[in-house]
Amino acid sequence: MAKQYDVLFRLLLLGDSGVGKTCLLCRFTDNEFHPSHISTIGVDFKMKTLEIDGIKVRIQIWDTAGQERYQTITKQYYRRAQGIFLVYDITSERSFQHIMKWASDVDEYAPDNIQRILIGNKSDEEEKRQVATGQGNKLAKDYGMDFFETSASTNYNITESFTRLAEQVLAANKKDLDLLRASVTDELNLAALEEEEGITDGAAASQKGCWC
């Protein structure tokens, strides 16, 4: 009986409009990069399964519109997440300044044990760089986050950063994870644990029969 996954959880991509959230996601889930794409209006998500320490981790990654006024909509999804990417664009000082705003929103609306990671995207555009790597490092340190410079365009540090955040979420939920190890036949639905009942990935749920 091949299990689809052992753990399911949700990650959220946040950051200013145009920093490359959708491109990061496309690169990670489909290994594609489209120079011509459309702006994100509202909320979208994609799925991908990773294997970390022998555990099959199914992650649901939510992509959000970056413009401030969409936050009334996107904020509703903060509380459902276990991990958050704070993304800026290394060619945009402004998008870096705004990370502080994004981080404080996360503090306000996301669950307490949420895991965060800082991403400086578009690292391939060195000639247009406005934010030094050191600045990113320092900010990440101040906030106690890990930090990656990435490029969706050249596929630099994409899997690394997504895997790192997934590992952090796993570690933060170690207690539940140990339970999982004790009873290998069960799956663990972190996403569902956050709410009263499981919003499971239905296909997987139906394949495995009763989980609720």
Partner: peptide, 12 residues
């Protein structure tokens, strides 16, 4: 479309 993901994919 048995699932949240499948349904969303279809609608998008």
């Amino acid at each position: 479309v048995q699932g949240m993901y499948e349904t969303m994919e279809r609608l998008r």
